[in-house]
């Protein structure tokens, strides 16, 4: 249950944030691409939450403290560079995570095998934009570096072991660091030197401690569903 919710909530919350871009993307092709990623993640979330119970009850009727997603995915979109950084950090984590799950014998193996193909595209998309923005104009470089720095402190939590997931967390972390460092380097960006988490943030999302913007996010997400108790949609 803990593991299912952790994986499902990560996908649900990031999908929601990406959905907020609809109608606001910098170019029409990105309207399509961001929606694609959001839809893939929502599909994953629905499968995972259904493994844990009723998908809508879990998405719409849990309180903030009961969500088990990492804090990284709930971070507001910010500018396009911020969104791309969030996607880069998350995809570089989700891909090796799902690769490991796909080759294991857990209940997640089938789902992970399918999802890993989707995530490979998400990572590719994020890496391409990291290169374009990092090595584009001075402005895009500065914005991208700001995104990379600002979200860095939310990355440590990704490698906190989750109960019920048979994962080699150490190799997951080194895979992540290797792919992120490589793309940042090619994009002429600097890998942040600061800690990947503070004492407060380490593992906090998985324990149901979230950041302030998350409360407003789920208030908006849940409002209509909660306004009509028991209704079908």
């Amino acid at each position: 249950m803990t593991a299912t919710l952790a994986l499902g909530d990560d996908a649900l919350v990031l999908s929601h944030r990406l959905g907020e871009w609809a109608g606001h993307a910098p170019v029409l092709e990105e309207e399509v691409a961001l929606a694609n990623i959001a839809l893939d993640l929502l599909g994953q979330a629905r499968l995972l939450l259904s493994m844990a119970g009723d998908e809508d009850e879990l998405a719409y009727l849990r309180e903030e403290r009961a969500f088990r997603n990492v804090q990284l995915v709930e971070q507001p979109n910010g500018d396009f560079a911020h969104t791309i950084t969030r996607q880069l950090y998350f995809s570089a984590y989700q891909r090796p995570l799902y690769e490991q799950l796909a080759s294991g014998g857990s209940a997640f193996a089938g789902l992970a095998a399918k999802a890993v193909k989707e995530v490979a595209y998400h990572q590719d998309h994020a890496e391409h934009w990291t290169l374009r923005l990092g090595d584009g104009t001075d402005e895009s470089h500065d914005r991208m570096q700001r995104g990379v720095d600002a979200l860095w402190r939310f990355t440590g939590e990704l490698f906190e072991p989750v109960e019920g997931l048979e994962i080699d967390w150490r190799s997951l972390r080194s895979d992540w660091l290797e792919s992120v460092s490589a793309v940042l380097d090619r994009a002429t960006l600097t890998l942040p030197a600061g800690p990947q988490s503070g004492a407060w943030t380490a593992g906090a999302g998985r324990q149901g401690i979230h950041t302030e913007p998350f409360g407003r996010m789920i208030a908006e997400m849940q409002h209509l569903h909660r306004s009509h108790p028991g209704a079908s949609w």
Binding site: G19, E20, L39, A59, H223, L224
Partner: peptide, 30 residues
């Protein structure tokens, strides 16, 4: 036309409806 519908993506009352709406708005971009 994406705007009036995108206005409801964040508040869609079930995950199924949310997926349908997101895909629809995406189709419009396409």
């Amino acid at each position: 036309g994406m705007q009036p519908e995108a206005n409801w993506i964040s508040r869609a009352p079930s995950l199924r409806r949310k997926a349908i709406l997101m895909a629809k708005v995406q189709d419009e971009a396409g």
